[in-house]
């Protein structure tokens, strides 16, 4: 019995996710519609109740995290630590605050110790709405350089966002054009 639970724990720690194909084409994920131009793998991992994770080569190498329909007072990731609570979304937040919300949430998901450089906050015109987009670069706790691209769209006082994060070398630039095309096709 003990062995089984150790195995289960090891499996959890090693993130034994299972995957299904998300073929190229039109999708609607967490209320966000978009078009992908290549195949992705939908992972069983989640970062919160209203999230879905896609990857090409495994979550640690590259992942697209979709988080949709966050209401006023809710967090974008599930809070795991009382010491380091996740910041809450407010419906009246402006783009600078939304960027801080995402950055602090990411930091706190890693013990508050990641030093994240967030830059290039800018508007992105989408069909029927305006989104806000910015870039991040940081070293994860293993010392791996990572880059991320995030798009955030508020609709009916709810926050919707997609974060693409990947190893800075090879895996980020490899998908950058595809991610840009997914973000540009976003509709809510």
């Amino acid at each position: 019995m003990k062995k089984i639970s150790i195995l289960a724990l090891a499996c959890m720690l090693a993130a034994c996710a299972h995957y299904s194909l998300a073929p190229e084409g039109a999708h609607t994920v967490q209320g966000m519609s978009f078009v992908s131009t290549t195949d992705w793998n939908k992972s069983s991992l989640r970062s919160g109740a209203k999230s879905e994770v896609w990857t090409k080569d495994g979550e640690r190498l590259n992942q697209l995290t979709f988080i949709g329909g966050i209401k006023d007072g809710q967090t974008i990731f599930t809070s795991r630590s009382k010491e380091l609570p996740m910041p809450e979304f407010r419906a009246n937040m402006l783009p600078n605050e939304l960027m801080e919300l995402v950055v602090t949430s990411l930091k706190n998901s890693s013990g508050g110790e990641l030093v994240i450089d967030a830059t290039n906050l800018r508007p992105q015109r989408l069909q029927g709405s305006i989104g806000f987009r910015f870039d991040m670069s940081y070293y994860d706790s293993n010392g791996l350089a990572r880059r991320a691209d995030c798009i955030m769209v508020k609709k009916d006082d709810r926050l919707n966002l997609i974060i693409f994060s990947a190893a800075g070398m090879h895996y980020y630039p490899k998908e950058a054009a595809e991610v840009d095309s997914i973000f540009s096709s976003l509709q809510l």
Partner: peptide, 9 residues
């Protein structure tokens, strides 16, 4: 500034 597009918007 890196966010000048946002500000200009």
């Amino acid at each position: 500034a890196d966010d000048r597009e946002m500000i200009n918007f």
